[in-house]
Amino acid sequence: MDGPAERGEAIRYVAKNMRLDLRLIAEMIPRGAKVLDIGCGDGALLAHLTAEKGADARGIEIDMAAVTEAVASGLAVIHGDADTDLAFYPDGAFDYVVLSRTLQAVEKPREVLRQMLRIGRHAIVSFPNFGHWQMRWRLLVTGRMPDTETWNRPWYETPNIHPCTIADFFALCAMEGYVVEEWLAVDEHGRRAPWRRSARLANLFGEQALFKLRRG
């Protein structure tokens, strides 16, 4: 159980500065939508969507303490794992399926995306961009795996086993035939970054990426 527990920690780590990031996700979701938040932590987004947008919002979270917190505050959250539990939801059960800063930590990101777009009409995915200039620079200059605010764990114990760049993610969407309905790059604190028009610049300067997809 070492792996999932570690992943749980990683999710909590990013939860510290999630408020703005969550707001950006919430802006993409219309009122009254049926939403599944994968890796929902203690349910901050679920609570927001329920209270502010009248959403039917449910979650999956791998960390017991976080799930307990969410359930104790009356949210519908399942103690589970994105890699294994999504397969059991029926097709089209949700309007939006959200995966916030967790894609890089799952066992099979491509399969998780497929499942998200099977059970949801739209998928909203955010992930840290491994193509950011700091990563490139550090790798080039030091020859060592980058150590930044986002990528802050040594390679041998990082839960982030599937890092990707914004360009990689566009390529995967093209390969799988997903339509990118909306995308944006943000800085570490979830503030919108100015290079929205150019994917190449975003891939160099965006610390986090946020995508809204649908099936092609």
Partner: peptide, 21 residues
Amino acid sequence: SRALVRALNAAAANVSFVEFA
């Protein structure tokens, strides 16, 4: 319990689940 939760999900029920350590 997990099998039960999966069946409830398949039925699109509103379900919470925790395994307590």
